[in-house]
Amino acid sequence: MGQIILGVGDFGASNNPDDEIKTFALGSCVSVIFLDPKTRSIGMAHVALPDSTINKAKAAEKPGYFADTAIPALLAQMAELGCDKRGKGIIVKLCGGANVMDTNDTFQIGKRNALSIKKILWSYGMGAIAEDLGGNYSRTVSISISAGQVTLSSPGKPHWQL
């Protein structure tokens, strides 16, 4: 089985039923998951920050890092696997975006990431059918391409599905 491990700011997609896409320990980062039933392909981006205007050079080098550049980049990669360019028919799931406890507005990066992602998805006419966002814990996500199953885990908690 091939494992596609995505670090912070990475994105990737696959239609190989033997593959698994995995990302470790999302804190305030949000994982955007695209599942396309038509082509049986799945993609994911590990988004760290809401807005690329703070560093255009970083966005050019690692588009997956920012919400506004990650979604077009992931869609383009999915399109190479035969998915609709504008994301028609793609199922979206979101997870991550945690915060430390008693956080103030400034430190709510998790929340801002999620909001920014939703706004951009909306501009494509896309929306999440399932989400597991917020809370005060880190999440590890793995998706098997064949089953299309999104599994989440966090130290000290039993695994759960999204």
């Binding site: 912070v8 980062c29 998790g110």
Partner: peptide, 11 residues
């Protein structure tokens, strides 16, 4: 927040 905690206590 950046994903580097030390396990169960993170966040």
């Amino acid at each position: 927040m950046g994903g580097y905690g030390t396990g169960s206590d993170s966040m």
